[in-house]
């Protein structure tokens, strides 16, 4: 019989196995957000982001940023806005991000926790609907934590690694979902003059 009834049960089971997520604060980092020209204008006029309300995002709801070097972060913002959101002429907005309570799901110290969630999700699927197990995706454990982790912990942001940005050889892009808008300041429009083709070779 399946003893996991609610998401809280799943987190309790993992806690009972002595595993905990580790949080950290981070120095101010620069994040890059790719969007449509119209949305960028609104963001810059209103000086704030409207977080995605639906929980289907890569690491839950929040304002999404790429965190890497300026060139790569900007590049990732353009690519994702263009490829996935289908904005023909994307604009990238940069922001300073000061996060006191960050849950970094890509940190080595959190890997055992993430592995345990992945394992329990598989157990649940095998027990309840094995014919849909093939639908489980690589980032579903991280997404499950990001969406269902108890909110009382005051997490301001989630961070997770992306493996690959389409069209590039860059495999170390970090995605940040900022839940607490007070972490975001100093918004700027980033002008990407080099054509993408040039950036891809950098």
């Amino acid at each position: 019989m399946c003893i996991i009834q609610t998401p809280e049960d799943l987190f309790s089971i993992i806690a009972s196995r002595g595993l905990e997520l580790e949080f950290r604060s981070c120095e101010t980092i620069v994040g890059f957000h790719g969007t449509s020209a119209e949305a960028a204008k609104n963001i810059l006029n209103e000086r704030h982001f409207r977080p995605t309300a639906h929980p289907a995002g890569y690491i839950g709801s929040g304002a999404y940023f790429w965190e890497t070097s300026e060139m790569n972060g900007c590049h990732a913002g353009i690519l994702f806005a263009r490829h996935y959101h289908k904005f023909p002429d994307p604009v990238v907005v940069s922001a300073d991000l000061k996060i006191e309570r960050l849950l970094d799901l890509g940190a080595p110290e959190n890997e055992p926790y993430l592995n345990e969630v992945e394992s329990l999700l598989v157990e649940l699927m095998l027990q309840r609907q094995p014919d849909r197990l093939h639908e489980l995706h690589e980032n579903d454990a991280a997404k499950y934590i990001a969406i269902h982790y108890p909110e009382a912990d005051g997490i301001q942001a989630f961070r997770y690694r992306r493996f690959h940005v389409p069209g590039t050889n860059n495999r170390s892009q970090w995605a940040l979902a900022i839940r607490d808008s007070s972490c975001i300041s100093d918004l700027k429009q980033v002008y990407c003059n080099p054509p993408l083709e040039q950036m891809e070779t950098s």
């Binding site: 995706h137 980032n139 493996f163 690959h164 389409p166």
Partner: peptide
């Protein structure tokens, strides 16, 4: 929400983020 429904909810709302990522368990 049932824990299993929570998984199905994730599976049913796959968005645009389906590029290749490493499974968490590769690093255990």
């Amino acid at each position: 929400m049932d824990a299993f429904d929570a998984i199905l909810n994730i599976l049913d709302k796959k968005g645009a983020e389906q590029d290749a990522l490493p499974f968490a368990s590769l690093h255990q």
